[in-house]
Amino acid sequence: MMERYDIHRSIPAILLALMVAATIFYAFVEVGFGEPEVDKEDSVSNRFISNSTQETGSSNFVTAVVVNYRGFDTLGEVTVLFLASAGMGAIVSALPAGDKRKRPIPPSLILTAGTRLVLPLIILFGAYVFVHGHLSPGGGFQGGVIIASGLLLYIVIFPEWKAPHKALALSESLAGLSFAGIGIIGLAVGGIFLDNVISGLGEAGMLVSAGLIPLIYIAIGIKVGAEMTGLVARMKGGDA
């Protein structure tokens, strides 16, 4: 079908959109871009910048904030992703029947052999990224997404492959429980949920350092990898 666009009918929408965007934009100019807010005496981030390596043992400050200072947000974030993945499963089972899909064209040898070759490397790289989340850019979410992107490649190349939803659900569950469990250990030992009780362990900058942060990021990495794979596989359909 052809859509017809009458320019005069889109004027109100364009004006409204410009007005809202301009208001947000002007407020942002008022707040200021590139100004050293953190140097203000009373800024929250001051402590993150000057103390986080000592306090958490993490060389990556963003990781220190994500997993330690604001770990509770991250637990919520993991929950959101869990809900999306579980919700997708529930919705897929409520979907009305769709059209029969055509059989896809079989992929060539280069694609299948190449995929088999790079898939382990992608997964290894993903694991590397989440294990080193406290040292270098990246972390559990990024690593998990890298793993899922490898499996996305696999799903595209081998459309007949059925995702092992049970195994994915199990690893999702276990990883989520270990994240919450680490938090509860903090509550039981120090009386504070998600307290990094062994932050002093190891030397900053080394792989074994930053206490519980790498453990949490490994759990997140596995969880995100499993959930994203599940999401992609469900989107492909056919194996609810």
């Binding site: 963003v62 994500v66 974030e77 809900l83």
Partner: peptide, 21 residues
């Protein structure tokens, strides 16, 4: 400032979840 970077990481993941749903 590392804090907004941490926030945006959370926001991206949440945005992905809502888009998927």
């Amino acid at each position: 400032d590392p804090l907004p970077q941490a926030l945006v990481l959370t926001a991206i993941v949440i945005g992905l979840a809502t888009t998927a749903i």
